[in-house]
Write a protein that binds this DNA or RNA. Structure first.
Lengths: 211, 211
DNA sequence: GTGAACATACCAACCGGTCGGTATGGCGAG
DNA sequence: CTCGCCATACCGACCGGTTGGTATGTTCAC
């Protein structure tokens, strides 16, 4: 779940600096391995500032998922592919955008919420809930598109289930990308899976496959 | 990547007890959040035993991925679905088995390697390499099946890419499962994604969809 | 002059890892 | 048969450093 820093405004206050530091460090090494001290150093603020803005490290984790969610869903609901009239083409346009956004090292295109939920789903209810909202919220963006596509193309399928499946493939693609030795291989790996997802939707909606 | 304890022999020596403890605790809370002391307590051994068998915590992490890999790939290459003659049906049989194995809480059916690689892909080369082998090794089990299916059904597709895509969906399904509030919802979520994957393969190989 | 936004100094608990030691069992020499 | 030798398996006290978190300022806009 993409947007790198260039997509977001450079943070001014300590709070946002800490959240940006969280995006960077937690994507790279996970939540538990990232210490409060490290976050402060990366953000260029002190521990006092940290605990002024966040009740605990756990609170930053939960806030981070919300921060992430807000910036990414804003990005995806404003992008040009939204103007495409045909609902299926709109969804495929979204996937093309995601494919295009995959670049650089894996930690620059993977998902903060997807990383955090693996560590926190049993041990931190606030983090689980926030990551849940982030991931399912992104899926929600496409339920209506799928409903329209289903009725237009007369296909028997469940709109919500398909939206969730898109998230499944995206999250899984990030994991497989992380197994690769080089950035290029990771990029190719992640993109390939999204192409499979596109083909599934094309086949399901009985459209001629581009391949 | 499934098999729960019942599929593996009860460990006798300290080494295997520690690996079993690793499977349990790291699935639940991740690698970094699991301390050596905790692993020893869960395994019922002391720190001395830990560092007698493993050079470091990191070494246990890497060994754990191999341990996991060995027991799961053994399980999947011995299972009955392997006897199915038709290569596509064999692959679909594998997915049916995976669907059937999804049960209980998310930490009992999710993948140790998929959890660890998110934390270690940048910070620990031994862990990344071991998780890579585990995940890609599982995918390798089905390359030949796909090759046979592709030539039998005369479909234009890449066998290795399809095998990897199966892993993508499986890993992604585990992440989405962890977002759910209840075990039942998590189970349903994970199974649903594998059903989508089945349908993709059925459509791709031009077989009548079961749905 | 008051409250939000930070900085500094500090703490107890816990972390990964070390180390000196013991219990057990295999094995070759006498 | 047995005794000495040694390797392996395991124990648990201990160490220095790091952790998340706190208590107490300081600064400055309103």
């Amino acid at each position: 779940m993409i947007p790198n820093r260039p997509f977001r405004p450079a943070p001014q206050n300590a709070r946002d600096k800490l959240l940006e530091a969280g995006v960077k460090l937690i994507r790279q090494q996970g939540y538990a391995a990232t210490s409060v001290g490290e976050l402060c150093e990366e953000a260029g603020v002190t521990k006092g500032a940290f605990f002024h803005h966040f009740e605990s490290k756990e609170a930053l984790g939960a806030e981070l998922a919300r921060y992430w969610s807000t910036s990414t869903s804003g990005f995806f609901s404003d992008a040009p592919y939204r103007q495409i009239e045909d609902p299926l083409e709109r969804i495929l346009g979204y996937l093309d955008l995601r494919i295009a956004l995959i670049g650089g090292p894996a930690e620059s295109f993977s998902c903060v919420a997807g990383t955090m939920i693996q560590e926190g789903f049993r041990t931190s209810e606030p983090i689980r809930a926030a990551c849940r909202e982030s991931i399912l919220g992104n899926a929600d963006l496409f339920v209506e598109d799928f409903e329209q596509a289903i009725s237009r193309y007369g296909v028997k399928a469940d709109a919500r289930s398909l939206s969730l499946h898109m998230q499944v493939v995206i999250q899984g693609a990030f994991i497989l990308a992380k197994t690769q030795d080089t950035d290029d291989a990771a990029i190719a790996m992640a993109r390939e899976s999204l192409v499979h997802l596109k083909r599934y939707l094309e086949l399901l909606f009985a459209k001629e496959t581009t391949q």
